[in-house]
Write a protein that binds this DNA or RNA. Structure first.
Lengths: 148, 148
DNA sequence: TTGCTTGCAAATGATTTGCACTGCT
DNA sequence: AGCAGTGCAAATCATTTGCAAGCAA
């Protein structure tokens, strides 16, 4: 709970920086994302917070992405998935089930992450890129779908 | 040239396996992807092969994705990008410019790839996943946009 | 011929937007 | 009162699909 109110406070701060209020509806979105625990789609979000309206949810998610509060993931043709920004949670990657679309968060060990960052920095530099973030998605079949 | 006709032959084989012909239009798509050298969007594809029609291009790309000939990348809200399947080219990852959307292919060294695969297999196993592929996208700013 | 492919135009579905209304401050 | 936020309904835009006509085996 303490961690939660800390989170809400931090978020309010980030919204303030772009002159936005942390309204009840926006809090509902954040709470739904926290409770979900992994990236969810807009319909899923509305299911978890029925007080929300589709258009406002889209609007607020877009605004909060601006504010660095949420992140939008696009892996498939249909619904994008949303999760809290990484620096509000933890640096992590995704295990994605090709069958059902389930997305599971996973973390790599620090040493390996450091190795990767070094490798990416070098690669990017060679290509004239200035890297600022990396995503790793591992595709496969989840336990449920494997049993099909 | 030799490598190219080899490629076309291989592709024709893959299409045959799902009872599809390697028609002129489909060849145009593949040629455009080869010439592009990096993932391109549908409008870009049509620009490179003006003989193509939008709907047929979409249809054929979808079918060729089925056949394991092309891959569809979805990183942003707008147009998806298409590239040849990895086993027709080479295992690689993407450097993506946040400003202009440019996507550049890069490869990691074999040793690091092996380390990663091992790590992912372990992670996935712990989560009950059966992994079959990984994508790594490095986001940042490309040389052109950095000069803005 | 005999279907598989194509092109055109219309449909679909996620996301966005206009506008009038509600609720803070 | 005054303006940011919301909900509703209509608009967008990438992608998909139905159908009639063209092309390859």
């Amino acid at each position: 709970m303490a961690a939660d109110s800390q989170l809400h406070h931090e978020i309010q701060g980030r919204l303030q920086q772009i002159d936005q209020l942390y309204t009840r509806g926006r809090q509902s979105i954040v709470e739904a994302l926290v409770e979900a625990g992994s990236p969810i789609t807009l319909p899923e979000l509305l299911g978890r917070a029925p007080n929300l309206t589709q258009s406002s949810a889209y609007r607020n998610l877009a605004m909060m992405e601006e504010a660095g509060v949420v992140r939008r993931l696009v892996h498939s043709t249909d619904h994008a998935h949303y999760e809290l920004a990484e620096d509000l949670t933890e640096h992590h990657h995704h295990l994605i089930c090709r069958q059902c679309g389930l997305i599971k968060d996973v973390t790599l060990d620090k040493r390996l992450e450091r190795t990767l960052d070094t490798a990416f920095d070098k690669l990017a530099a060679d290509a004239g890129f200035q890297p600022d973030h990396h995503d790793i998605d591992v595709f496969g079949t989840c336990a449920d779908c494997a049993g099909t």
